[in-house]
Design a protein around this nucleic acid. Structure first.
Lengths: 169, 169
DNA sequence: GCAATATACTAGGACATCCAAGGGTTTGGA
DNA sequence: TCCAAACCCTTGGATGTCCTAGTATATTGC
């Protein structure tokens, strides 16, 4: 996307904030902006690893979720809740995964409103291979120290709970 | 988007990773997934605050960048580099901001290839108001402790430099 | 038992991001 | 001097996300 900048643009933004008299919120602004940028970098790495499998991160997450379900099947609304994305995003992902023959839709046995998503044999295979690739090429080389990884898990765990993602602690 | 889950879905994913023998990368996987989710939550808060101004985060970032430029104007490629997004994303944002009369395009005085983006008076006003809103409603209530904010800035600063975003230290 | 309310999924629209390609402008080396 | 390579912006296409209905099925309450 380009050559490195001579200066950290987020540090510059922080200085701009301070210079304009917003010192009280300059640090959180910088932290939040850094989260945004880091997410963008990580997502690009992940998508790059998944591309050979014909997967995007959204579709991979759904496959992985199904692969951990006891029966290999989940209702769409359950998937939406667990992945914490809008139901229409799940519909979209399932449409494409179904077209690629990695999952199938089937009616819920007792609730006519509900659609079950189920992994196909190929879906399970692709999921396994994609996970192996992500483990070795992204998660295994995250660039974060072990201590920092635990810090991030702690900080964002608190944040997500406060944001209403889940109840336990 | 829904009621809180009974359990932290990312902590569950981490346990799944460990149960499948990927303990060595389970923690970074959890950290990266938490970054993704946190970004999503923060972006939603930001977009929500910006909506009354008719802005999205992408457009706001461009406005804010311009407001800090000495002359209030920047070449598009410069904006693309500083915001670290694809040039086509800048084209898209400028199209919409120009339609809203918040910025104007003008030819570069000496380089015929380059287009300058410049804030209009209204663009400057909207930028100021939107920044004030974000400062008070998002950055001022980030939910991160002061210490954690500094930790995040440190950790992601290292990460972004290693990812090639910038050169200094 | 039936109407009103709630829940589940999908269709269509608005935005953002990236990539690939195309057309115009500059620059630089033969 | 002049043409090829480099650079800048835009267009068109693929994806993903969310929101706002709209349709179908369940549940609840009177």
């Amino acid at each position: 996307m380009g050559t490195p900048l001579p200066r950290d643009p987020i540090a510059e933004a922080r200085r701009n904030w301070e210079r304009h008299g917003w010192s009280d919120v300059a640090a959180p602004m910088a932290a939040i902006t850094a989260i945004m940028r880091t997410q963008q970098i990580l997502l690009a790495r992940i998508e790059n690893v998944l591309k050979p499998f014909g997967l995007t991160f959204a579709r991979y997450e759904l496959l992985a979720l199904l692969s951990f379900a006891r029966s290999g099947a989940l209702p769409m609304n359950k998937a939406s809740a667990l992945l914490q994305v809008h139901p229409t995003s799940v519909t979209n992902a399932v449409d494409r995964l179904e077209k690629a023959a990695l999952v199938t839709r089937s009616p819920h046995p007792t609730d006519g409103r509900t659609t079950l998503i189920e992994l196909t044999a190929e879906g399970r295979t692709v999921s396994k291979r994609a996970t192996a690739a992500l483990n070795s090429e992204v998660f295994g080389q995250s660039g974060f120290s072990e201590d920092d990884v635990e810090e991030l898990i702690r900080i964002f765990g608190i944040f997500r709970r406060n944001a209403g993602d889940f109840d336990d602690g």
